[in-house]
């Protein structure tokens, strides 16, 4: 009798602990390694809020490149050590630094065995990050945040009769260089001129902040009608300084991304809100973590809806207001 009771007690205890183990495993939060490029942006906020809103338990391990790609190898090492459930990264440079180009990503140098989600990458195929947007054929997926160049130009031309467009860019930023090439091609086809000015580089090949005034003034001196800001992290980080110089020359700015308009005084742009894009990236991360999908099964795409932002403060300074036909649709920011 006593032996029987002891056996029953042991079995019960085992069952209880095993259930506790299962429960605790179920309650254990997902670990997501977040690599920001230039601090926490609305992209990261949207990404993290998604999980909070849906009460999905997640532990975020946050790192910041501070716009320096030389930090990325350290993050790679750390990721390999702590082995999170998923890696999130902001921007093309960050994504290439963590996951490597699609045609050359040795496992010892890059993250290949942990699923990854990249956010705010404008041209993943042209950047050599993935082969095609329907499937990366790799252990990564992500979101694009930029409206197609043709759509942006149509929005721009609804306000200006385009003849001479200036472009500021970072020669080290793939997004920037690709955007410039697309604009040059469009300019030849549609009959407008492109004038460009590149930022200078430091010895470590990173863009030089000190070169900003000279680059902007050099561009302004060529009398562009307006200036286009591509999706360029360096440019976005220093947008306020750039816009201030251009405002002195009364040259408006059309930005491909949100922050220069909402935070730095650029006049207008056709953009996807970073926050919404971040949430969309989080949705893809949820597919991987909770629903067990492989990243290669999740297509890389963008949100279908864009916002035409118009900065009213900049509009007043430049005396350039949204056209009447767009008033119903523009999103006014100050």
């Amino acid at each position: 009798m006593n032996r029987r009771c002891l056996v029953y007690l042991l079995v019960t205890i085992c069952l209880v602990f095993s259930q506790a183990g299962l429960l605790s495993a179920a309650m254990k939060p997902y670990r997501i390694y977040v690599v920001a490029w230039r601090g926490i942006t609305n992209g990261e906020r949207g990404f993290m809020d998604y999980f909070t809103d849906r009460k999905i338990p997640v532990e975020f391990i946050i790192r910041d490149c501070e716009s320096d790609k030389n930090r990325l190898p350290d993050f790679v090492r750390e990721i390999k050590e702590i082995r999170p459930d998923l890696v999130y990264v902001f921007g093309t440079s960050g994504a290439l630094g963590l996951f490597g180009p699609r045609d050359n990503h040795p496992a010892d140098k890059y993250i290949t065995d942990i699923p990854g989600v990249f956010n705010i990458v404008s041209v993943p195929v042209e950047s050599n990050l993935v082969e095609n947007l329907n499937s990366s054929n790799r252990n990564i997926t992500g979101t694009v945040h930029i409206a197609p160049m043709e759509t942006q130009l149509n929005a721009l031309k609804s306000v200006f009769r385009l003849t001479r467009l200036g472009v500021l860019y970072n020669p080290q930023e793939k997004n920037s260089v690709l955007a410039l090439k697309k604009l040059e091609k469009a300019g030849k086809e549609q009959g407008f001129e492109i004038i460009s000015s590149a930022f200078g580089l430091k010895e470590d090949k990173n863009p030089d902040k000190a070169s900003i005034p000279e680059a902007v003034v050099r561009l302004a001196a060529q009398n562009p009608q307006l200036v286009y800001f591509p999706s360029d992290s360096f440019l976005v980080s220093n947008a306020t300084e750039v816009v201030d110089i251009l405002n002195r020359y009364r040259i408006p700015v059309f930005s491909a991304t949100e922050d220069p308009i909402s935070k730095s005084g650029a006049l207008m742009g056709l953009v996807c809100h970073y926050y919404n894009v971040g949430m969309y990236s989080a949705y893809k991360a949820e597919q991987i973590l909770v629903h067990g999908k492989k990243p290669s099964e999740i297509p890389i795409d963008s949100l279908n809806r864009f916002s035409f932002l118009f900065n009213m403060t900049a509009a007043k300074k430049l005396d350039l207001y949204p056209p009447f036909n767009l008033l119903k649709f523009v999103e006014i920011v100050r």
Partner: peptide, 23 residues
Amino acid sequence: GLSFRKAIENEIPLDRLQNTALV
């Protein structure tokens, strides 16, 4: 009228609206 009211709301001077005649 909605467009005019939006202009007023955002302090756009009513005599500075572009493309109105085109609309």
